[in-house]
Amino acid sequence: MKCPRCKNENKLYFYEDTKGIYCRKCIRFGKVYVNQHIVSPQVYKPKIQTKIHLDYELSDVQKDAIQKVELLYEHHNKVLVYAACGAGKTEITLQQIQQHLKDGKKVGYAIARRQVVIELAERLAQAFPGVNVIKVCGGYTNVIDGDLIVCTTHQLYRYHKCFDLLVLDEMDAFPFANNEVLQQLAINACCGKMLLLSATPEAQHFQEVKDGYMGQVSIFERPHKHPLIKPKIFRLPSILQYVFCFLCVMRHKGKWIIFLPKISQVELLEKICRRFIRCRSISSMTTDKDELMAQFNNGDFQIVFATTILERGITIKGVHVAILHGEHVVYTKASLIQMIGRVGRKFDAPTGYAYIFCKRKTKEIEACKKEIIMMNKKAKHV
């Protein structure tokens, strides 16, 4: 037996009712029976003539990466764009998106987290004036078809064999990473080419490249040509981590994201610190994340205490980052790189400060620092 949707063959996940045998591994996306044929939905595929509109010039490195992607697609259906945080990997997708829309082909842009879908849809709508860019995620499922679909990876179950081009952004992020069901939904949704984007690809992606199943383009230079921020690491007892962290906040004025591993920690710090400083907390339990981030971006408060929910997909001008309890198991090399990658992303704010406070240096912390140094060297930043 095999599930026609998630391709599960484990007998423990199958159950029989009066209509037949169905799969429980992917049942959250609706009941699918073993002998059922999944029908691709009817989607609108007009030929769309549109020009890419950007308020800035692409760098020579970005232009070179775009050409390499084009060449790799002559021999591969999948291409990995391995790009440093803030290197402009979204811009590298624009020419492929434009070409597919011009040819009357369907384009999907999938990313793991809802907050990023909302921001990304706005960016793509600005880049393609006149194109109907729709977002499909929690709270936005009334309209599910448009010229260009931006969705969470969970929503890909709606688009079986629909996308001639599927851009899969941050495919190493939770909850997509190591989730066999979501990964199969992405495969099912794509009937043409796939473009994978990440600053922190996993070993399996590099192995696919090595084995010749996927092409790879690397881009480590940020458009403003400033290096990635190297984190300063301090080994301290827990209580001193908080003391030194707030000394850094007082010393370096500006916006701060202070990462902590637990929801209870971010909520407690907000309760304590709101008495003497403008701050808020954001975690998976926060119901008004979008509004809070807009307020933070506007400078309504100085500090956000956050879990790893803010490690990816956000760009805040002039932000600094501090990571507390850096030895915690929740912090992987990838998450540390992503958190530090929030700093220095803007042309008019290309620098900043990043700190990791920990009781001990873990392999993940050392690997994070080593990879950032490697990226700066390859981008010719010493």
Rank of each mutant, 00 (worst) to 15 (best):
M375I: 02
E170W: 11
K19M: 05
V32F: 01
L94S: 03
D169I: 00
A125F: 02
Q99S: 13
I144N: 07
S40V: 05
N298G: 09
K333V: 01
L101P: 04
K193H: 15
H224L: 03
T200L: 11
R342M: 11
I118N: 08
T200Q: 07
C3E: 00
F174V: 02
K378D: 06
L197K: 14
V107L: 08
M1Q: 10
P350H: 04
K363R: 15
M171R: 13
V34N: 00
Q115S: 09
Y73A: 08
G212V: 06
I48P: 13
G139E: 02
N376E: 07
A125R: 14
G318K: 02
C26R: 01
I309L: 06
I258C: 04
Y22D: 09
A83K: 07
N142Q: 11
I372N: 03
E202G: 13
V343R: 06
P46E: 12
I272Q: 10
L197G: 03
A334V: 01
H160D: 07
T315M: 03
A306K: 09
L196E: 07
F206Q: 12
K346M: 07
S283R: 08
T153N: 10
Y82V: 01
A177V: 04
I309V: 14
Q265V: 07
P4N: 01
R28N: 11
I48H: 05
A199D: 13
R280W: 10
K255Q: 15
I97N: 06
I372R: 09
Q62M: 08
E366W: 00
D17K: 09
I27A: 01
A84Y: 02
N188K: 15
G104C: 10
V143Q: 14
A306M: 13
L101W: 08
H205C: 02
V133M: 07
V382Q: 12
N10R: 08
A322P: 02
I272D: 11
S40N: 08
E364I: 02
P231W: 02
R342Q: 05
C137N: 04
T286A: 14
Y33N: 05
G138L: 01
S283W: 06
S238F: 09
C248G: 00
N376F: 08
D172I: 00
K45P: 05
T153L: 14
G138N: 06
T93K: 10
K232G: 02
S59K: 12
V343C: 07
I356E: 10
V329A: 13
L120Y: 09
Y15G: 00
A87W: 06
Q302E: 15
C137F: 13
T362V: 03
R342H: 03
M285P: 00
A125S: 11
I340S: 04
H160W: 12
R235K: 12
K106F: 03
A354G: 11
D147P: 00
Q126D: 13
L156D: 03
E311P: 08
N77K: 10
Q184S: 06
K63Q: 15
A84V: 02
P46D: 13
